[in-house]
Amino acid sequence: SRDSLLTSLDKGESILTDRQTDRPTDRQTDRPTELKDALIKLLQYVFGYAPVLLADITTAFRGEYITKKDSRKGTIPVILGGQEPAYYIDRFNHKGKFVAIARSGVSAGFVSFWDEPIFLTDGFGFEAKRIVDIRYLYYELKRREPELNAMKRGAGVPHLSGSELNQLVIHLPSLSRQKECIRKLDKLDALCHDISFGLPAEIEARKKQYEYYRDKLLSFKEKKG
């Protein structure tokens, strides 16, 4: 109903219920997907965004266990969970554009973007589906790194749960709005992380500007009726 829909929006909950995600029949293979996409577009038009689950807009995969002694030296970065590649080997387990989230340890929740062959090990990877641009998803998850880091659980070596990550609610604007955000944030990101653009003080100022505009661009307020 309208009231339950608005309540879900106000709470920031996903609007894709079990009824809308039931397994399709043989004669209606794409029907649930079409209905979900139509509902998302309607909410984007009315409210400016649609609250969806990360699982609804991505295809997720988990890294593979590997040790340095089990591989040969090469040029493929091994993403072990830290902020930099752990080492380089001669094979990969994934290529193409995707977002990686570190799974365990101090860096759990660290978000990175990749568009090259890599070997993902202690982390989760997310590829974009048809209604989200992977670069937009990267910026949104990067903005929420503190939240992701706070989700880790367990004694000893804390870790993130893949099922809990999949239930993360994303406020998703239209693809055209996503691309507009990406264009602006890519430009600011380049200014912030290329030291050839200026002195350290100027770079720091650019970083603050980038973070300010990133939060503004990726935050959505409900339209007043």
Rank of each mutant, 00 (worst) to 15 (best):
P24A: 10
A38V: 08
G105Q: 05
V157W: 10
G48E: 00
R19V: 08
G48W: 00
P173Q: 05
A201M: 15
L168M: 11
H171W: 07
K216A: 09
G198A: 14
L54A: 03
K97I: 13
S219M: 08
R183F: 12
I89S: 00
R214T: 08
D37K: 10
V106G: 08
N149F: 06
T59F: 07
K208H: 13
R206W: 11
D37A: 09
L148D: 01
L137P: 00
F126H: 06
S174K: 05
P24E: 11
I76G: 01
K68D: 02
K69I: 08
S163H: 10
K224Y: 05
G74S: 02
T121H: 10
L6D: 11
G96I: 05
E64Q: 10
I182V: 09
E13K: 08
S1R: 11
L42M: 11
K152L: 06
L185R: 07
P51L: 07
R130F: 10
K11G: 09
L9G: 02
H193V: 08
F220A: 11
P77C: 05
L160F: 01
S14N: 00
S8I: 05
G74V: 00
D30N: 12
F113M: 09
H159W: 04
K221W: 02
K73S: 08
L160H: 01
G154T: 13
E147T: 10
K208T: 12
R103S: 08
Q20N: 15
G82Y: 05
K152F: 03
G154A: 13
T67F: 05
V106D: 09
Y138Q: 00
G63D: 02
S196A: 15
K142Q: 04
I203T: 12
E127P: 01
E147P: 01
I131L: 14
L39H: 06
G198D: 13
K11W: 07
L35N: 11
Y212F: 14
N166E: 13
K216H: 08
I40R: 02
G81Q: 03
C181A: 15
E180N: 13
E180P: 03
K223P: 06
F126W: 09
F113G: 03
G105F: 04
F110N: 04
D30W: 11
Y87H: 07
A150V: 06
E180Y: 09
S196D: 15
F220M: 12
Y139G: 04
N166D: 14
S112L: 02
T25M: 14
F113A: 03
F119Q: 02
S163F: 10
S14W: 01
F126R: 06
A108G: 06
K187G: 06
I118Y: 01
R23N: 15
R23W: 13
L137F: 01
L6P: 03
K184R: 15
L137H: 00
S14M: 01
D122S: 14
L39D: 07
Q20V: 12
S4Q: 15
F126N: 05
V111D: 00
D115P: 04
S112D: 01
F98H: 06
D18K: 09
W114S: 01
F61L: 02
